[in-house]
Design a protein around this nucleic acid. Structure first.
Length: 308
RNA sequence: CGCGGGGUAGAGCAGUUGGUAGCUCGUCGGGCUCAUAACCCGGAGGUCGGGGGUUCAAGUCCCUCCCCCGCAA
């Protein structure tokens, strides 16, 4: 089939790769290269690199809604459009181009978690189940009729990065099933239940700020949910310390909220939260690398210090 | 050349105005103990990121290159 694939980041890779393997006639529409990293080197989106590797034509637009984007899309004349974490909102004019419409792969069980960062928010909110959904794209934000869904359990210590990888692969699998059903004419789109709908906002740097007044479980969920990006952090004596990995524990000791109640290279680092202690397993001081808390304690005495 | 922090023993850090390179943990050996991740004694392990320079003498000062990281984008 002649398919226009619209996707930008890593999440889109397995789906895109699947379409390539299936031998579809593809074109990639994605964001422009962006400055990245410390030196601001212009970096192509992951999907672009994959496209080039397989000789798939690439079109990059800041806004595909604009006339140039619409024109390029029309010129390619796709039968079907597929989006996965595209990061741009499509106009009705865009959506009207392919006769078969547009299918989106979304990393949540819609209508829950419409929007930009469903994976992170599912973990931050402490959910134990999430999944992937394929849907018909409408002009609204993730509001279109649902085609297929697949659930998955969220591990108690799973990070957003880990879940991201799993859902990206499941998304590709679900997309494949969806296309098969489309070909067989067995798709049965069903409208989303607006009463159950929820929207999530984008994750900002500040989302990663740890509030130790929350219960240990909430702190743990936040740390998992923002790992590896943007990463959780807290202030320790004026420095911003990143908190990469935590573990729930049943220690009876108590101290002031945020205080390093136990800080021993052999036992580990335990901080008082609003409810129970939490063990910080991996952290990172500014200018330094990410490391085991037990290792960090060898050169950074933390007993009695307090996170804010 | 956006701002800044850093590369010292296997790991995490310290190293004062240049003057024989230290600490904690680990590791190896020995001891104590019913026993131990505890305690005591002892040992091994470092061309101080690379190159150049100043100096009687450079981890420390100057120049240069490489690599890592935080912030900002």
């Amino acid at each position: 089939m002649r398919i226009a694939f619209l996707g930008t980041p890593d999440f889109a890779i397995p789906s895109f790769e699947m379409l390539i393997k299936e031998g579809h006639e593809l074109a990639l529409f994605t964001n422009p290269d962006r400055p990245k990293g410390r030196h601001g080197a212009l970096t192509p989106p992951p999907t672009k690199e994959l496209a080039q590797k397989h000789g798939v034509p690439v079109y990059q637009f800041e806004k595909i809604r604009r006339p140039e984007g619409v024109a390029a899309l029309k010129a390619f004349a796709p039968e079907l459009m597929v989006t996965a974490a595209f990061g741009q909102i499509l106009s009705q004019e865009n959506l009207d181009i392919p006769p078969l419409g547009c299918i989106n792969v979304h990393a949540s069980l819609l209508p829950k978690y419409r929007g930009a960062a469903p994976i992170q928010w599912a973990i931050i909110n402490g959910d134990s189940v999430t999944g992937v959904t394929t849907m018909l794209t409408e002009a609204g934000l993730d509001t279109g009729p649902i085609l297929l869904q697949k659930e998955t359990l969220i591990g108690a210590d799973e990070t957003a990065g880990e879940l991201f990888d799993r859902l990206a692969i499941q998304g590709a699998g679900l997309l494949k099933e969806t296309l098969a059903a489309l070909a067989a004419g067995t798709l049965a789109p069903r409208l989303q239940n607006e009463a159950e709908a929820s929207r999530c906002t984008m994750i900002k740097k500040e989302t990663g700020r740890v509030d130790f007044f929350q219960p240990a479980q909430r702190v743990h969920d936040l740390v998992r949910g923002v790992s590896p990006w943007p990463g959780a952090y807290a202030e320790l004596e004026g420095e911003s310390v990143k908190i990469w990995k935590t573990r729930l524990c049943q220690r009876p000791e108590r101290g002031e909220v945020g205080a390093c109640v136990i800080a021993d290279p052999k036992e580990g680092l335990f901080v008082q939260t609003g409810e129970g202690l939490i063990e910080i397993v991996e952290l990172q001081f500014p200018g330094s690398k990410r490391m085991e808390a037990k290792a960090a304690l060898l050169g950074h005495p933390m007993r009695g210090k307090r996170f804010a």
